[in-house]
Amino acid sequence: MDMRSHLGRARGLGSAKEGYDHWWGQRLTSIAMVPLSFWFVYSMVGLIGADYETLLAWAGTHGNALMMVLFVMTLFHHLNAGVQVIIEDYVHTEWLKIASLIVVKYGCIALALSCIIAVLRLAFGG
C-alpha cells in the first residue's frame, strides 16, 4: 500500500523539477537590483575623481556600507544565476558544463566576499 499523498508523489517530477528555486531567485534579485542599481550609479557619480579622504568619508557611513554590501550580494547572486543559464544553453559537453558551473559559482562567491571584506575594511578603517 502506498502511504504517500498525491502531492508528495508528484512533487519534483514535473518539467520544472528543482528549477523553480533558480527562477524565483533570479526574479527576486532582479526586483532588488532595480533600486540598488539606481543607488549605485548615484553613489559612483558622486565619487568620480574622489581622493582617499572623500572615499573613506563615503564608506564610513552606516547607510553606504550597508547598501554596498546588499548591492554586491545581490549583484553576484544575480550574475551567477544569469551565467548559469548561458552555460546550460550553450555548453553541451557534460563534464565541461559541470566544471564551468562550479568555477562560475565559486568565482562569484569569491568576488562577492572580496567586495564585502573591502567594504567592511573601509567602513571600520582596518
Binding site: 582617499y52 564608506a59 554586491v72 551565467v83 548561458i86 568576488l111 572580496s114 567586495c115
Partner: peptide
Amino acid sequence: TGVGLGVGALFLTYWLTAAAYGPEAFA
C-alpha cells in the same frame, strides 16, 4: 549586456579591493 555587466563586476571588485588596500592603490 548581462555578460558585459559581469565584466563590470570584475572592475568593481578591483576598484573596491584597491580602495581597501590603501591610498596608493586607490589612486
